[in-house]
Each structure stands twice: as C-alpha cells, then as structure tokens.
Write a protein that binds this DNA or RNA. Structure first.
Length: 383
DNA sequence: ATGTAC
C-alpha cells in the first residue's frame, strides 16, 4: 500500500498523531506542525490529519481530534455546522440551461419568503441571524449544479435513489454570523483554552453549538430551495453532513470529544467530497470502523496556495472573464473578482489524489463522480 | 470563515 501514515508518541499526555496522506499528496510542513501542537493540548487523545490537511488559523484544517475530560471550541472554529448538502434535482442533466441560469440566477441577501415558517419546518429555532439564512457566504462556500460523470458502484448509487441522467445540487455553506458570534463569546473569556466537560460553561457552549449545527443545515436547505426556485425544478435532499463540529462519543469505555475541523463524518453514510469548481466531486461511501481515522474523512481538495498567493499568481495568467468557464465547460457565477481568483481551480490540490489516498487507506469506496455544470458563488461586487 | 478589525 502506498499510503504512508506516521505514528508519533509524545510525552505525557500521550496523544497519537497520524497523517493519512500518501507521499504524492503533498502536505505543508506547517500543517503537520499545527497538528502536533494540537496533540500536545491537555486531554488530547488523538490528532488525525486527512489527505486534505492544510494550515489554518492556529489549528490545521482537514483534521479530526479526540479528547477526554475537556474539549476545545477554537478547534471547531467560527463556522460551526459548516458542511455539505446534496440534492437530487427533478430535471434531466441534458435539459440544464447553464448559460441562461448563469446570467439570471440570484441568491443574495435576505430571503423574502416565510423564514420563521421555513425554520419551523426544519425543526430549528430562530437565532437572530435570519437575515443571512439561505445565503451562501464567502470563502470556499458555493452552490453547484452537477451532472453525474460516472457511476462506480451502481448498487450504492441506486440505494441513494439516484439516477445517472439527473441533475444534482451540492451546497457548501455554514452558520454564517451565528457560529462566529458563538466562538467570539467563548474566545473573549477563554481564548484558545478548553472547557471542562460537564461544566455549566461546557453545557452552555454545546447548546449553542448544537443549535448552530442545526441552523447551518437549515441554511443549506434554504440555499438549495432558492437555487431550485430559480431554475424551476423540484428536489429531494439525499444527504447533509457537517464537517466543523464537536460531538461526544463513547470510545474505549470513556466519554470522548470528537472535534472535526474540515473533516467529513465517516459514520453517517455516504458523503460528497468536492473538488474545486473546475474538478470532479466524489460521492463516496465510508468503509471500515473508522477507529484509525477518528471516524472522519477528507472534506475537500484542500488549498494549495494561500488566498493572497492565488490572487497574485492567477491574475498574471488568467482574465476574470476566462475564469467564469471551466475545463468542464461549466459556468461560474462570481462577480467578486478577488474571490474569483482566490477560488480558481489552480489554487487547490488535485481532488483525485485526495480521494485515492482515502481509498488506499481503506477508508472509502467511490460511488460516483460528479461534474460541475454551474457553480454559484456570489453576484455581489463587494470586496 | 465573518451583517468582517479599531
């Protein structure tokens, strides 16, 4: 097996550090240093880097951490509940009007429907951030209409109720200002410090965290609804998974805390691992018991260049206009030019390698590959 | 990542 994993035992507390990535899947040294630093935190049991591991603000992204006795809100980060939702669209892919949709589709600002009613249907309480419910957000968030490129596991594909000739909609978004407010309130008191499990403060954080996770899921559902209203098609939610969270988990007879920071769950059924907007996305099914990977998977391709580097390098070689089409002939709606350059496919690692690493590590099987048809980022010119 | 930091 070409997948290399390194096990490092550290002096007390002995947390396991493991990076699941082949030598072909280049991981920045800084990301591994951040992973090792997290492993030295009090109570930490395991720190696992997935093949999309890359440096973050203090803690790395593309990683999962388990701890005992206390947990760390800053490891979850500001976008509590961020994740991926996939919808099966009731329209044949060959009927897609990508060019027309690219010119008229608009998912910006507060939704003018019954927001409270929508939240009630989703079983979620209002948060005070409802003006942002149903908005994509910035950074690497998107809503993308996709077609099925190839089915690799016909049975698993059919079990999801999917058909190869139909359009799909993938939404990557989170809890917008809500998660940010929750993290800020915590950091104001505790900085990067953890919370003692079972304490009043831990309980209060987890209540707010769980609400943000549910609200983020509802946010993805409303983004999907607005896109589907825009193209005039019905849809069914196929899956929705969160890749930024902390959850309790019984392991080795103890109560542990599983932090996921840009790590998809390996214990909730199939997930989509998106490439960049100019690459395939992978619908995969977890394999194995997850114990060696902290029950987690890669959540995307992972950034190769920083946003600043991407802006500089890609501006030299491409016009903004040329970046609104991809090698798949798909369309990109992104009227913020800086964001268009920052999120260019060239700024990301190759998703194929990331997924191959997961397959070779015995963590997933590929169900299908999905190709972009239309990627929606923003119509806003704000920088 | 963020109705964006001071």
């Amino acid at each position: 097996m070409s997948t290399a994993s390194t096990e490092t035992s550290l002096p007390s507390p002995a947390a396991t550090v493991r990076v699941i990535a082949s030598p072909q899947s280049w991981v920045e040294g800084e990301a591994v240093r951040q992973l090792e630093a997290v492993a030295r935190l009090p109570g930490m049991k395991a720190a696992v880097g997935l093949p999309d591991l890359h440096p973050g603000k203090g803690a790395p992204v593309g990683a999962a951490f388990t701890s005992e006795g206390l947990f760390y809100p800053y490891l979850v980060g500001n976008d509590i509940g961020c994740g991926m939702g996939l919808w099966d669209v009731g329209m044949l892919a060959r009927k897609a009007k990508a060019e027309r949709w690219a010119s008229k589709l608009e998912v910006e600002g507060p939704w003018n429907g019954d927001v409270e009613g929508f939240l009630a249907e989703e079983g979620v309480k209002p948060s005070g951030f409802e003006g942002a419910l149903g908005t994509v957000g910035g950074g690497n968030h998107f809503a993308e209409l996709q077609r099925v490129d190839a089915v690799h596991d016909a049975r698993a594909f059919a079990e999801l109720g999917l058909e190869a000739d139909r359009l799909l909609l993938l939404v990557h978004s989170g809890s917008r200002g809500l998660g940010e407010a929750i993290l800020r309130a915590h950091v104001d008191r505790h900085a990067a410090g953890g919370l003692v499990a079972g304490s009043d403060e831990a309980r209060a954080y987890l209540t707010r965290h769980d609400h943000a996770v549910a609200w983020a899921r509802a946010n993805r559902a409303l983004v999907a609804r607005r896109v589907l209203d825009g193209i005039g098609a019905p849809a069914r939610r196929v899956l929705d998974v969160c890749h930024n969270s902390v959850t309790p988990r019984r392991e080795d007879g103890a109560l542990r805390w599983l932090h996921r920071k840009g790590a998809a769950p390996a214990d909730e059924g199939p997930v989509v691992i998106p490439g960049s907007r100019g690459a395939l996305s992978y619908l995969v099914a977890p394999v194995g018991d997850g114990t060696g990977s902290a029950y987690s998977l890669a959540h995307g391709a992972g950034r190769k260049w920083t946003r600043t580097a991407a802006r500089e390098r890609i501006k030299e070689r491409f016009t903004a206009e040329s970046l609104t089409r991809t090698s798949f002939k798909s369309h990109v709606v992104c009227e913020n030019k800086d964001l268009l350059f920052e999120e260019a496919p060239q700024a990301y690692k190759a998703i194929d390698r990331v997924v191959t690493d997961l397959v070779e590590a015995g963590l997933v099987k590929v169900v299908a590959t999905l190709a972009p048809v239309l990627t929606y980022k923003t119509r806003s010119h704000e920088e």
